[in-house]
Amino acid sequence: MSQEWPLWEVFIRGQHGLNHRHVGSLHAADAEMALKNARDVYTRRNEGVSIWVVEAAHITASSPSDKGPLYEPSESKVYRHPTFFDIPDDAGHM
């Protein structure tokens, strides 16, 4: 069997100025082809104005078993949310 085309992850920025968002993946021989294929597969209905493709092998992902150590520290820091602070209504809009 011949060598399989590498896997690419596709990110698209839509019309409204939001961040690029992961939309899916595809196989392509190189980056140029990955972009073209992403255009054909993921923007058939005007879903985007900008495409990023990244070879999947280059992505480093956190592991689910790290969930605790990675995210627990922020759980106790409720003061990072504006709702933590009780400010009298009379102080005006804030």
Partner: peptide, 16 residues
Amino acid sequence: GAWVRDGLMAHAAKKR
């Protein structure tokens, strides 16, 4: 399609 798949891989390697 085999020769196309292989050819494009070879082309990508050459370009790299």
